[in-house]
């Protein structure tokens, strides 16, 4: 029974990976509470929480909601990326597909141009247009006369993204270069500097519902990565199950993008790392992506607010680290020789 001993060894290795992943997330979360630029750069001693009222306020009303937002954002983008890659049977799909990211970007830019740069106005407008992007992608895909459902969705998603991107270009062109344009540019680069408990509460319902659906369906998702005929013959209601998963993941992405802007690479790279650690099955990679994604974005956001006296846009850091990881991953991936 060599297959059973192989399996036992494999599950022992995976159990260790889960332990390290959880420990890593807890450690990063805890450390990030004490890392920042107050009272001096990089580190706030623990005793200050008892002595200094300002330190306590800083942690409770700024750092904590921001770290939670980063956690939700990373978990959401990574889970969404993972699910979309499975549903589209394509490991290089990212959560920005289906017009969501560009829709949110357009909504934010439009609010800054026509309403105000007040966070709530920008966030709500971004949320609205993110869902509009999703809706438009679905509507256009339904009207297309050729190709399977997946191909039609991808094509219309690309077209809708391009439309919104053109809109963002136009808004940047007409925006006031001294007041509005920097605001728009900074938003487009992505960041969590404006997050308070209000933003956390705004994201929470979308993120919770979306992630719970995805976690519950984590094994079932595997079937959708197979061919249409096979998924059908295994009893999958492919149309309905795909749509439910798409709407849940994209709602999650829309809500976090509305708060934090377009954060690249998380949804693409984290699922690859999860598969490296836990194999291809979404039963394990979905929860692993959630933990890894949370860890990664909390880490990146801590760098974003702590390294320099001024804020570095989060999107810049995730892209930098994400792309570097990706190159590393590609260079070390290949047929592994068996001993």
């Amino acid at each position: 029974m060599e297959s059973r001993t192989d399996l036992t060894r494999l599950s022992a290795r995976r159990a260790r990976s889960w332990g390290m992943l959880l420990a890593g997330l807890l450690l990063t979360f805890t450390l990030s509470i004490f890392i920042g630029r107050y009272p001096q750069p990089y580190w706030m001693p623990l005793r200050l929480l008892g002595e200094d009222e300002l330190a306590r306020q800083l942690v409770l009303s700024l750092r904590l909601p921001r770290i939670l937002a980063a956690l939700m954002m990373g978990a959401s983008l990574a889970a969404a990326g993972n699910v979309l890659q499975m549903v589209f049977s394509n490991p290089i799909v990212g959560p920005g597909i289906l017009g969501v990211s560009q829709g949110a970007a357009f909504g934010a830019a439009l609010a800054i141009l026509t309403l105000s740069a007040a966070p709530l106005a920008v966030e709500l407008s971004a949320l609205l247009f993110a869902f509009l992007g999703l809706g438009l992608s679905f509507l256009i895909a339904r009207q297309l006369r050729y190709g399977g459902w997946v191909l039609r969705l991808v094509l219309s998603g690309i077209a809708v993204s391009a439309l919104f991107a053109a809109g963002v270009g136009l808004i940047k062109y007409v925006a006031d270069p001294l007041t509005q344009l920097p605001e728009i540019t900074f938003w487009l680069l992505g960041g969590l500097w404006s997050v308070t408990w209000r933003e956390v509460l705004l994201m929470l319902p979308f993120v919770t519902v979306g992630l719970v659906i995805v976690i519950l369906m984590r094994w079932r998702i595997n079937l959708l990565s197979l061919s249409e005929q096979t998924a059908f013959s295994l009893g999958s209601q492919t149309g309905r199950e795909r749509t439910l998963l798409l709407v849940s993941t994209v709602a999650v992405v829309a809500s976090v993008t509305a708060i934090g802007g377009v954060i690249g690479w998380v949804g693409l790279i984290i699922p690859h790392m999860a598969r490296r650690l836990f194999g291809a099955s979404a039963q394990r990679t979905v929860p692993a992506s959630i933990l890894l994604g949370g860890l990664f974005v909390v880490f990146c956001d801590t760098l974003a607010r702590a390294i320099l006296p001024g804020e570095i846009p989060l999107g810049v850091i995730t892209s930098l680290l994400g792309a570097a990881f990706f190159i590393l991953l590609m260079m070390t991936t290949g047929p592994r020789l068996k001993p």
Binding site: S89, M217, W219, L223, L226, L234, R275, Q283
Partner: peptide, 25 residues
């Protein structure tokens, strides 16, 4: 298959008709 499923994971998918949509094997 776009993903590197193990043979066991792959064959396990054949159990889907006997499982609920939210169930794991």
């Amino acid at each position: 298959t776009a993903f590197e499923f193990s043979v066991l994971e792959y064959v396990l998918m054949g159990r889907a008709p006997h499982m609920g949509i939210l169930q794991t094997p």
